[in-house]
Design a protein around this nucleic acid. Sequence first.
DNA 1: TTAATACCAAGTAAATAGGTAGGAAATTAG
DNA 2: CTAATTTCCTACCTATTTACTTGGTATTAA
Lengths: 155, 155
Amino acid sequence: MRLSTKGRYAVTAMLDLALNGAKGPVTLAEISENQGISLSYLEQLFAALRSKELVRGVRGPGGGYYLGKSADDISIANIICAVDEWVEFTRCGGRQNCSRGARCLTHSLWDDLSAEIFDFLANISLEDLIKRGSIEAEKKTPELNVVPNGDSQAA
Amino acid sequence: MRLSTKGRYAVTAMLDLALNGAKGPVTLAEISENQGISLSYLEQLFAALRSKELVRGVRGPGGGYYLGKSADDISIANIICAVDEWVEFTRCGGRQNCSRGARCLTHSLWDDLSAEIFDFLANISLEDLIKRGSIEAEKKTPELNVVPNGDSQAA
DNA sequence: TTAATACCAAGTAAATAGGTAGGAAATTAG
DNA sequence: CTAATTTCCTACCTATTTACTTGGTATTAA
């Protein structure tokens, strides 16, 4: 999994689309103004989003973008993967010389964690985010068998 | 939250340290060889980790690095934040002109999600990762009130 | 036909990732 | 004490990625 500002731009743009798309297509110019992202950078992001059918473009005057499917069927992971490529598995499957095993083990652990994060984001849809409006408060421990470590804040 | 290869390097290096640190300090040279990361890049990463007291260095022959505290007290979020700085909140608190409210709303949604991801990683310690060895299987839905959307895999 | 819009391609400046080089300081083995 | 080992420190460097710019073409509503 990879989480960059590029992914954030894509998610916020998609949120904008989901929030304002009810009354007709939303132009990139609007999103650009609303979100403070340059028009042609948005074009690049939306080219990627369109190729994954997460958005649908309508040309001509009065055109713009719709969501490609229901906000309920678009996960955050979908969006981030669309713009970030994300084929960067570290599986040392054969070609990497995992000399001492240590590399394979840590890579395997990382891969598992990475999959876990992906799963987490794959289970949050645009609709979820919007419905909730604000999440915060009332956090429970995540699903995996963790030991709350009491030291979870940033330094 | 920010999740890059830099953070991955840091996490795998810390895992290496946790796995091999029982029988004395681990040198960066060893980690470099095990994980395939250049020595001086590791030095940069460990300078950041050291400043957050996540590792403790021992100089001289036979020296190396120990974990700065128990593997149970070091969360994945701790590690990633140490090397990634991560002060990039998009809070448009005052200075940003949130012209139409759309920006503030989407930013707020993103911030909430970002905090959620952080919390997720803050509740996974090095010890958790190692103990489990392999996570996979038996995933339950994350804690927040999500609607499993049945479309959670990458495109 | 004109204007608005998506779409497309090439290039660019800035930031970041990741690595090199060359040390100084501490500490241990001899 | 000396030499080797290792952390620690600074500066620089290259490749990639971000984010943006420019200059278009295609489509379509009015």
